[in-house]
Write a protein that binds this DNA or RNA. Structure first.
Lengths: 354, 354
DNA sequence: CTACAGTGTGGGAGCGCTCCCACAGCTGGG
DNA sequence: CCCAGCTGTGGGAGCGCTCCCACACTGTAG
């Protein structure tokens, strides 16, 4: 454990303190022998610059290690070159675990090419929600990405009326006016239920998320659709209302089991609910998948570690993040216009629980 | 340049369309009947303002809905009122799953009181690392939080020489010159191993993380210490070198089993490694915990869902995030001064695997 | 020859703040 | 009485950019 090799240079604040005075555009202009305007044009890629002026400027920039001052630019353009990713903290707990990081990772990957900054804003209570409103009203970001939307969330409405470019992960309902990206929840659910039916299940139940979220509705819709396509009547007793959490999954599963002991398959709208359900089923002496087959949704790490490993619907979360960022950048640069929607395909990952 | 976005002059020319033209400090001053200087003093909490002037200004601010323009302030103070959280993307995969979100959540909670912004910077390759260096050199944040540090990571050295306030999660080694926060890894490991010994294990093995990370070293150290305290000789054959990943855990466990079939306990330096190890053990016909007791580290969701549920060492990750933010704010405001270190206690969560 | 469009360029103005200097009013000591 | 020494205050200067106008210079048409 030797002392790590440090650059010797900064341990003594005395001598080498040249780093302080950052070169300005003016200095670049002087060194290149041109005016400020020309340097600015070069930096911003204007075509109205002669080849030799451009080259002189680029050389000077390199030599001085010049980096434009963002604040100065923002002050005059009132662009901030940054976007905010807004995450309601309450929701954070509901997410399939890598969800949050994967979204971030996708967004950040897409932004890496740009010189946009990513601001992270967690909102955990009303006070912070108000602060956020003030913040956004004050035009301090060029665009907003919102993760997780409840039907009655006031934020999207605010964004809409402020006309700030924004993209949602998920949507509030069918007629969402803002741009959004989401996974094909209905399709994934349908796929899962068809898989159960094909396996021979005849009494397929479902555990839903909170029905004021469109995701939950969509997954329930897919469940219903698959059953109807297969000629099964939709039976309300087979629907367990839950909330995406493990404990919620346990409770709902117990009720379901009491109400419909003959069920032989469960499609759960989240992996953690499925994990809870599996515990309850096992406690009730049901073997998985022999007596009851179980499918989750999200394909989170939890799915890989349950016993037996869980079959689950995977959504391309990182890709969602990328797409959100891409749509947002488009919207920022193309001066608004059309709202866009993207639906990404889901995929059934078959393991042993079904 | 294309016809750049000008502020549209009003959303709806009629009723409420005042939102567009953001009021400036000058307008506040005019309305309050004072000079710009006084308004600025009020906003920045200077004591040198008479009570009545202060009140007049506050009223005016409220009436106009004034919010200071950050860019203008940054331009003159060269404070940015933002800090960056830097996450090497490669590491992101190694983390116990809620790690990342919990750190963010803690940092963000602590920042909520302030009006500091949180910038998130993922670094996934050399190019982005270089960009980051340029970025930081250009002084575009007031402070930096760094998650996950390898012994040879160049970033901390850069931060040190730039003299940017910064706080690490973890440290590079014993003589880390930067401020840092970390969990009591050694203590947690020691606790875990003592638990195994108390249970009656006599051949306790361990699965380590990559040894160029101080975390891994510390956990190994705790393991070793507990054994020595109990009078057991340290046996290298009982040490499986791995990398924090599930697959790494599997491989190392297999080797360990081949080398020391008589082992009856395993302390794993991460939950996912432990999960992998448990699969291998079960496949080898060992019952958990009867034949081999297993303990993980992190107390991630994985631990709660393995079969049997895993005993694991919990580290207060959110609290680490909070503490990091707090230290960083101190360092920013007190302009340098002492580097600080905080070690947070770990806790053994006993479940069924040991 | 003049006229006139089209390039490329320099540099003034000004974005909204903070900093700081000057100065007005008020003590109170000499 | 004056002159320090306070407090509280107004407003000029200037942070580093972009925007845009004015001004060379071309070249081509009249």
């Amino acid at each position: 454990m030797s002392p790590t090799a440090q650059r010797p240079d900064a341990l003594h604040p005395g001598a080498g303190g040249r780093a302080t005075a950052r070169p300005t555009l003016e200095e670049v202009a002087a060194l290149a022998g041109v005016g400020r305007g020309t340097v600015s044009r070069v930096i911003n890629g204007s075509p109205r610059v002669s080849a030799k002026a451009r080259e002189a400027v680029q050389t000077a920039i390199a030599e001085l290690g010049y980096v434009p001052n963002r604040a100065a630019r923002t002050l005059v353009t009132s662009r901030t070159d940054s976007i905010a990713l807004v995450v309601p903290e309450a929701e954070t707990r509901l997410f399939s675990e890598p969800y949050f990081s994967d979204i971030i990772s996708g967004v950040s990957a897409e932004l890496a090419e740009t010189d946009m900054q990513l601001l992270l804003i967690l909102v955990r209570n009303q006070r912070e929600r108000d602060r956020l409103s003030a913040y956004l009203t004050a035009q301090r970001v060029d665009g907003v990405l919102v993760v997780s939307v409840h039907r009655d969330d006031p934020l999207p409405g605010l964004l809409e009326s402020l006309e700030i470019p924004s993209v949602l992960a998920g949507r509030r309902g069918d007629l969402e006016p803002l741009s959004y990206v989401h996974a094909d929840n209905a399709g994934g659910a349908r796929m899962a239920v068809r898989h159960l039916l094909r396996r021979g299940c005849t009494r397929v139940a479902t555990l839903t998320g909170p029905l004021d979220m469109e995701v939950a509705q969509a997954r329930l819709g897919g469940y219903r659709r698959a059953l109807e396509e297969a000629g099964h009547a939709y039976d309300e007793d087979l629907v367990g209302l839950a909330d995406f959490t493990e404990e919620g999954g346990r409770v709902a599963m117990r009720e379901l089991l009491a109400r419909k002991p003959e069920l032989d398959g469960v499609f759960c709208a989240s992996d953690v609910m499925a994990a809870g359900a599996m515990q309850v089923l096992r406690a009730a002496g049901r073997r998985i998948p022999d007596d009851v087959a179980v499918i989750g949704f999200d394909d989170s790490i939890v799915a890989r570690h349950t016993d037996p490993p869980m079959t689950s619907v995977r959504q391309p979360i990182e890709e969602m993040g990328r797409t959100m960022a891409r749509l947002l950048l488009d919207e920022i640069h193309e001066r608004g216009r059309a709202r866009r929607q993207v639906v990404l395909a889901t995929e059934l990952i078959v393991r042993d629980s079904a």
